[in-house]
Amino acid sequence: MRSVLKSYMSALLAASLSLVTAGVAMADGLLDRIKEKGEIVIGIEARYPPFEYVEDGKIVGYGVDLFEEVMKALPDVKVTRLDLPFQGLLPGLQTNKFDAIITSVTVNKQRYDTYRLSLPIADASFAYVKRKGDTSLNTPDDLSGKAVGTQAGSAQLKGTEAFSEHLKAQGKDPIASIQTYVDFNEAYADLAAGRTDAVVNSLPNLLYLQTQRGDVFETVSTTFGAPTYFSWAFRKEDDSKALADLVDEQFRRLAADGTMTRLQEKWFGFTMDLPTDALPEPTE
């Protein structure tokens, strides 16, 4: 018993020592340190098909393939992925838990102002999904007077609210109620349960949902609101600038040589027109 107790204590001591040494000082830019260490740590939320999700225990998707292409510019750097819920991603970036968020971040004004966002990786314009066979919903304007669900704190929520205002400005009834969920999967479950009439999300996600559960859901694929994009996020500091610039530069290369459209064809089944000069500044 005594020796057991002793080994507990030494294990604890070792653990606390490793905590202290982990917080090292930084001199060069983030990109230099990544090259030096031979490792980049990225935060991702692997619950967002077809962008990043888990299949047979491995994280796959459009975003994963795209990042692999980008990392060809840094062949000696190993990628370490941390998978965590979206609510943890942006705080984790701020607190240096990882070097970048390489997961689909829907661009909105607040995020544009807070983070250094990459060039768009995909079109994120909003559309909605309804229960299969619901004939009362066929166009975006049909959301007037309906109960709509979406993710709490998301750009999609802001977009839905803005669209409701837009309906009101047109003299129509606004959206009757907007229910928010911790995650889109709960929003879909509640749509199937009949508490809401539609779920607003970005079109690529909804099209994927339909390929998996076409028996229950039907996507109304007319997008509404201002054009919106998905980006990856970096810290808005000089330290992160070189890394973010490198990623943008690689995007331009991949767009020019056709790799990006090839990946879009592979994961979405259609291609998108994306700006490659700069990320358009969002209005809301």
């Binding site: 692997a46 619950r47 967002y48 098909p49 999700y53 888990v54 299949e55 998978d83 995650d183 999967n185 879909y188 949902l209 998996q212 559960r213 229950v216």
Partner: peptide, 8 residues
């Protein structure tokens, strides 16, 4: 949750 996200 990861499985739910892909299989719905």
């Amino acid at each position: 949750q990861q499985i739910v996200a892909t299989t719905y």
